[in-house]
Write a protein that binds this DNA or RNA. Sequence first.
DNA 1: AATGAATGAGTCTTCATTCAT
DNA 2: TATGAATGAAGACTCATTCAT
Lengths: 206, 206, 206, 206
Amino acid sequence: MNTHYKNKEKIDKMQDAIIKAAIKVYAAKGMHGIRIADIAKEADVSYGLVYHYFKNKEDVLNAIFAKSINIFLRAIENAAVQEKSLEHKLNSITTFLFNACKEFPEFMYVIMFEVIWTPKFLETRNFMSFTRAFSTFEKILIEYREKGELKKSIDTTVSTYMFFGGLEMILTGIVIKAIPVEKTEMFQKLSNSFINQYINGIAASK
Amino acid sequence: MNTHYKNKEKIDKMQDAIIKAAIKVYAAKGMHGIRIADIAKEADVSYGLVYHYFKNKEDVLNAIFAKSINIFLRAIENAAVQEKSLEHKLNSITTFLFNACKEFPEFMYVIMFEVIWTPKFLETRNFMSFTRAFSTFEKILIEYREKGELKKSIDTTVSTYMFFGGLEMILTGIVIKAIPVEKTEMFQKLSNSFINQYINGIAASK
Amino acid sequence: MNTHYKNKEKIDKMQDAIIKAAIKVYAAKGMHGIRIADIAKEADVSYGLVYHYFKNKEDVLNAIFAKSINIFLRAIENAAVQEKSLEHKLNSITTFLFNACKEFPEFMYVIMFEVIWTPKFLETRNFMSFTRAFSTFEKILIEYREKGELKKSIDTTVSTYMFFGGLEMILTGIVIKAIPVEKTEMFQKLSNSFINQYINGIAASK
Amino acid sequence: MNTHYKNKEKIDKMQDAIIKAAIKVYAAKGMHGIRIADIAKEADVSYGLVYHYFKNKEDVLNAIFAKSINIFLRAIENAAVQEKSLEHKLNSITTFLFNACKEFPEFMYVIMFEVIWTPKFLETRNFMSFTRAFSTFEKILIEYREKGELKKSIDTTVSTYMFFGGLEMILTGIVIKAIPVEKTEMFQKLSNSFINQYINGIAASK
DNA sequence: AATGAATGAGTCTTCATTCAT
DNA sequence: TATGAATGAAGACTCATTCAT
């Protein structure tokens, strides 16, 4: 009865293993340097097998993107719905991403470097994911501006871009080790500095 | 008058034409999608000729980078030496880059998307260029913090990354037309919003 | 029975088939005229497949050499260890090579023309093979000179070079059909003439 | 009046300079490694100029051969017509070639390695030159055999091949420095050893 | 006569993808 | 399922040759 079900599980597990391997290779060789043969070797399967689980290379690439981008979106959307202060919401986003950097640096490397800025992804439906993330965030800002917690004068679009741009650059700095992070507490310090400065920049003056 | 001199000029002109074509192709196809044949076609020369002016593909890529990165560095270093207020300095950088977006969007596209974030460039001597830009900027912040114009508490590294990250993201938004800029004045408005929020975030409270 | 073993065999067989094809092409077009595409066509495989079995063109060329030179070395070293007269030893070498000419003329053509005299092979480790062959042969001469069977006055180095040079030239003559060999017996006659004259030239006078 | 004549001279001089350069390149890079650009650089002219003096690459190659082979032929044919003993004749040939090795090693390298054994040259009219050299030499042997100075039993074809083969191998040994020749007298010693052994091998027993 | 910029055919090599086992 | 042999399209690069100056 559930042979079928079991197979489905197996397929999912295999696909996941291949995507994980693909992300590693992606991190090491970049979007265009990535080769099916390398992915297969990293996943310790034959390259022929990759074609059982994915239609073609493009399909693997899309899977990498889909898996990666979700981490981002979920963090933001989770934050958006919380009944908390703006600072809490921002903190929830940054903490999540800083933790990801700490725990899956390779993964974040891929998000930071390859997935986000590859023109290919910006043009297609993938772009929508970012658009959604940005507009979800902007809505938070608008909400808090209307509550009077943020300056009336701020350009929420600019503020949104500054948030993601600034955060991304710091994460990148960490990932490429231009910003050294020896102790775990450092992550929290960086996160706090970032949020403080960011909120100071837009908060309504008391 | 001087044949030798003329030839040198011709060569420079040709190299420049090829780099320009290369940047266009780069903008359209990305770092790895770029093909010598396309560059040649774009420059309206045979692909064999590209090899008269450049040793190989790598050489062309490096030339693109060298040409691109300079725009960035010069803007920052020019700003650093001006005897003006912090706001003026930041404005000088942003204005320069916003103008570049307006006048050479393709060019900026390349800088934003390909050159800056390509792992290849982050590893080698090219990375130094960015390091230099970042540290030049950080020195400005430190200087003004010591003058008492900025909060003692700011982490200048975080602030530096936020500046470049935020600026880059906005420029990117413009370049990919996610941020629509119909009128030229818009550039100034965006620039002002950005600088205001940025300085508000770090300025010492009066 | 053992799949792994079978694969190894298959690989060896395929490599050998490609080398054989390569030798044919080599014989027809020479060291530099040889093209991977031609080898593939001769072996009746796609040129992509050549790269499954060999790293690159250089690798194929080296394989040709390795296969070719061995025929030579073995003949000489086998002869050296035989407990027989000098005449027998020389005969053993010449017979072996004459037979090779008869049975694998293309193969010998490659050895004679391309492998032996290609500067590329003279420079590297390949040269060592020849050095070894020559010095193995010279040791035989020295041994027989000390036994008193050869003139004390002979310069064994010159004699060694004369042996290989003379033999090579005759083999070449045969291979390019400048020396016509209609009947098999002719080989023995040529071989005898060569050895007689050679030994007469160096034998101690009775 | 003799402007025309002068031009002819100039042309000859230029052609010769280019061929000399070509031989150097030939010696360094071999038949197929040779490039017009290299020849031009070696001759210190533009590569375009090569096409003023030679129709194409093939033409240059042929010129190299023609110039090279003549050295060989003249030595042999001069020897043939001398009214001297066989030993004298052989000595005249070997001395000439050993001297060439001493004085123009690059030149001889080309003859030894590239020109002689390149299949291309063996097939066409160039082959005739060698055929002629060999048969001229064989006629000398036949003449002396009839005079009773050489064994009736020798196979003059084999003897001819042995002469050229042995001589070539020794010259090659010298050219590639496998046979070290520190002092000039060494050449004479090598030459003597060679001729002695050679003649011993074929001379009628007294 | 002389130069070297310009051309493009020819080759090597890589790698996604297919398919027999 | 799983393997890896086999295929061939695609692209970098070389170099003989032409031609405007």
